[in-house]
Amino acid sequence: MVIPPAEHEREEARPQKASPLLRLALPVLLLVIWEIAAILLDNEFILPRIGSVLSILLHPAADILGSGSLISNGLISLERVLIGFFIATLIAIPLGIGMGRNDMVHTLFDPVIQMFRPIPPLAWVPLSLAWFKIGLSSMVFIIALGGFFPILLNTIDGVRSVRKTWIEAATTLGASEKGILMRVVLPGAAPTIWTGLRVGFGICWMCVVAAEMMPGTNSGIGYLIMTSYNWGQVQVIIAGMIVIGIIGLGVDSLFKFVEKRRFSWRELDR
């Protein structure tokens, strides 16, 4: 059989399937470079050997410098993030639905949102300390601010992407205003809102670590890193950073897993 030229070319142009082993190549290389550099430097206050970081990671429940373990501090950070994230979600989703559905609401809120959006959450730290003093509430404030904008903007976007035909079909089938909101707008916007939640959570997670480095904090993974710095325990700093990465990646994968299971229709529906 003769393959038509166009078909043939397409076959050629398709990129080669990469071996999954390739994913490991760079991480392994980085570890090797790290270990060599650590041996050459021979200064654990600048770059500890992999083994000493590993020995900390392998005992995640062990107390470190009297400041609690990796696990206990990680859980404290996670709890703070969840509170801030929850507050951000609670405000951003209803506001986003309002702004996406109603031009008047959008016009009313948009200027203020555009003005505040470019300010990084960490720029709020001094104000937040002045208003809420040191403690949970100032941290939650920073975290919620960080998560708020991606959730809000994605919600607006999602609500606006809901097809007019869906809404019209629903009204002709007898749906009330509330029915349209609950049965059409929300499920129709859900994939985009979910993306906003995922991005928002990522930013919340970055904010908590930074917020915990504020003076006067006495727990959390960010605090643990800062304390280790003051004690010259670089291997704990690195171990703490790895824990931050792992928790962040874990939550992100959870979001992606749900996205794939529940919201794949968006990609598949033309």
Partner: peptide
Amino acid sequence: SGPTPELAMIFQEYSLFPWR
């Protein structure tokens, strides 16, 4: 005076809810 289930509309395309 507005949409009513007395009059059901069938659109040209893409009116099904893809999440259902």
